[in-house]
């Protein structure tokens, strides 16, 4: 029986900054099943994220289901976190915290997440869903309503700010320049410029596959990373989503943007698992009986 896998904000930052100083990429990943968390932990992943889109992703559904009324995202962070804490020995685990929960104050949620479960930090998931130009995000009337006066974004930022004041490690998916500035002001430790839902595999976002689009996404990423650096030169900056779906594009994305690393969810669990199972099934299907 190992001791509890708990990290303070300082310890998480030391762990990540060590990677930066060694000029190695920070590799972080979502875990939608305990086994994924366990295997990531055994294979030297730097940071594990546990949030409500994970279980849907690992059940073969769209990550987007985690943003619809199919479960309570914060309850899921508690239940799933307890399970992950049981099998992840060395890697800090960061949990998703919803924006503006109707059932509990942020302070109460943080007590449950950090003091109760033993999470090492928080991230703004489910994300503010209204970014009309990004694939998979809520558009139309409902999107307008959610984003009225930036309501969801402001609540997300408020969560990060409260967590930061409590000396909890904070990270945030950022879609726009405005959100980078707001999370920066709230004291966010790790920015994650987000290119939208990840392409590739069976449930990926439908994206333009042209080289021109890829190049423009790389430029967009570089601009966002640069803005993160200017907002807070000490903050860690890792990239996520969209065209960053395979090892090659992830490597290009990290280099083009001079980011500190990559956060994957579909890219680090769903797509490799899909490919692995397909290959084993094909080997089995090739077998004939005597």
């Amino acid at each position: 029986m190992g001791e509890l896998n708990r990290y303070t904000r300082k310890e998480v930052l030391e762990r990540l900054n060590k990677k930066r100083s060694e000029k190695k990429p920070i590799i972080a990943s979502g875990a939608g099943a305990g086994l994924i968390g366990k295997v990531l932990d055994e294979n030297g992943c730097d940071l594990i994220f546990s949030y409500c889109t994970g279980a849907f992703r690992m059940d073969g559904y769209m990550s987007h289901f985690g943003m619809l009324p199919f479960l309570d995202c914060d309850e899921d962070s508690v239940v799933f976190g307890n399970r992950l804490m049981r099998v992840v020995k060395n890697t800090p685990i960061i949990c998703g915290i919803g924006a503006g929960s109707p059932t509990a104050h942020t302070e109460v949620l943080l007590e449950r997440f950090i003091d109760g479960v033993g999470y090492a930090g928080v991230i703004n998931v489910p994300i503010d869903p209204y970014y009309p130009e990004r694939p998979g995000c809520t558009r139309g009337m409902f999107g307008e309503r959610c984003s009225r006066d930036d309501a969801v974004l402001r609540k997300s930022v408020e969560n990060i700010s409260i967590a930061h004041k409590r000396d909890v490690f904070t990270s945030a998916y950022c879609f726009t320049d405005e959100s980078i500035r707001m999370f920066g002001d709230a004291g966010c430790d790790m920015f994650i410029p987000h290119l939208g839902f990840t392409a590739g595999g069976t449930n990926g976002a439908v994206l333009d596959t042209s080289q021109t689009f890829f190049e423009s996404e790389m430029e967009r990423l570089a601009r966002m990373v640069e803005l993160c650096r200017s907002v807070n030169p000490d903050a860690i900056c890792v990239v996520h989503g969209g065209v960053l779906a395979d090892t090659d594009s992830i490597a290009k994305g990290i280099r083009a943007s001079r980011a500190d690393g990559y956060v994957g969810a579909s890219g680090t669990e769903r797509i490799p698992v899909e490919q692995g199972i397909t290959q084993v099934m094909r080997e089995l299907r090739a077998i004939r009986k005597r």
Binding site: I250, A251, Y262
Partner: peptide, 12 residues
């Protein structure tokens, strides 16, 4: 699959 993929990412 996850093990191999992590190794590939970490060697970037």
């Amino acid at each position: 699959s996850i093990g191999k993929h992590q190794a590939a990412l970490q060697s970037i």
